[in-house]
Amino acid sequence: MATADRADPAKWPKARVRDDLVLADLQTVLAAGWQDFRAESGFGLFFGGIYLVSGWFLTWVTLVRGDVAWLVPAAAGFPLLAPFCAVGLYEISRRRAARLPLSWGAVLGALRGRGDEQILSVGVILFVGFGFWLMIGHGIFAVFLAESGIGSESLALFDTTAGWLMLVVGSSVGAAIAFFFYAMTVISLPMLVDRNVDFLTAIFTSFSAIKANQVVMTAWAAIVAASLTAALLPAFLGLLVVLPVLGHATWHLYRIVVLPEPAPVLVSPPVLPAA
């Protein structure tokens, strides 16, 4: 799509979404995601490894600073960045489905999108959202920390009533923020990898998919959240497998919820009567 066309919302392609997804579809996409991971495990382990090392680094920085107040919101908000990290995985699944050759250049190049910075625009929103959550989470931590009378460098906070209340309030606020960003990206990022659309069109399509299939898409959010949380527990090691499988599965979910683009209608020129 030309740059001038992107400035005019009336010219943005309108995507249609299904409204009849069932829970069994989630089992189907998970199975497809596992197949993609097994077939191209080298790519999957690479992207999962980046997330793993990033988690280690984030934890090390917060612990070295001796400020647990940053560790909790950082760990809770870390999964917000997973969709953007999974863009390369979407490209792998796309190429496998289309029987296109796979190469590191093509897969890593997916982060550039189609050369129009649409994917990077969504990435910027996600990173800003992550920073916003860090500030909110740190604020919640500080409020309950003051009530407990325990220093910020001590994990003993979590043995107090204030500590448990902080976890409940922080988890509730974090879950609301995480679901918003999930709704914004679960369909939009795979769509930007697959189609030449504006990032706002992709985001609106993602919200439409959530609205049209509330039960199934909320169930998928719960599966993603539970899986990523479980993967974080053993020193982030579970991310090596969980992240790529979920990334591939999300691609397949996008493919079944967003209907194919209609074929272009060819209009024949009018036949002029013979002179």
Rank of each mutant, 00 (worst) to 15 (best):
T3C: 00
A7H: 05
D8E: 10
P13D: 00
R18S: 12
L21T: 06
T28P: 06
A31H: 10
A31Y: 01
A32C: 00
G33E: 07
G33V: 02
Q35G: 11
F46L: 07
G49Q: 09
T59Q: 10
L63S: 14
L81Q: 15
P83R: 06
C85I: 13
R95V: 07
R95C: 07
L102W: 03
L102T: 08
L102M: 01
S103L: 12
W104N: 06
V107Y: 04
L108R: 06
G109I: 05
D116S: 01
D116W: 00
L120V: 05
S121G: 02
M135D: 10
F144S: 00
L145I: 01
L145S: 10
A146N: 01
S148L: 02
E153A: 15
L157D: 08
F158L: 11
T161S: 12
G163E: 10
L165R: 12
V169I: 15
V173K: 12
A175W: 11
S188G: 08
M191I: 02
V197R: 05
F199E: 09
L200I: 13
T201K: 13
T205C: 13
A212S: 15
V216W: 04
I223Y: 05
S227E: 14
L232D: 15
L232G: 10
P234M: 07
L237C: 13
V245E: 10
H252I: 13
H252T: 04
V257W: 03
P260W: 04
L266M: 11
S268Y: 08
P269L: 13
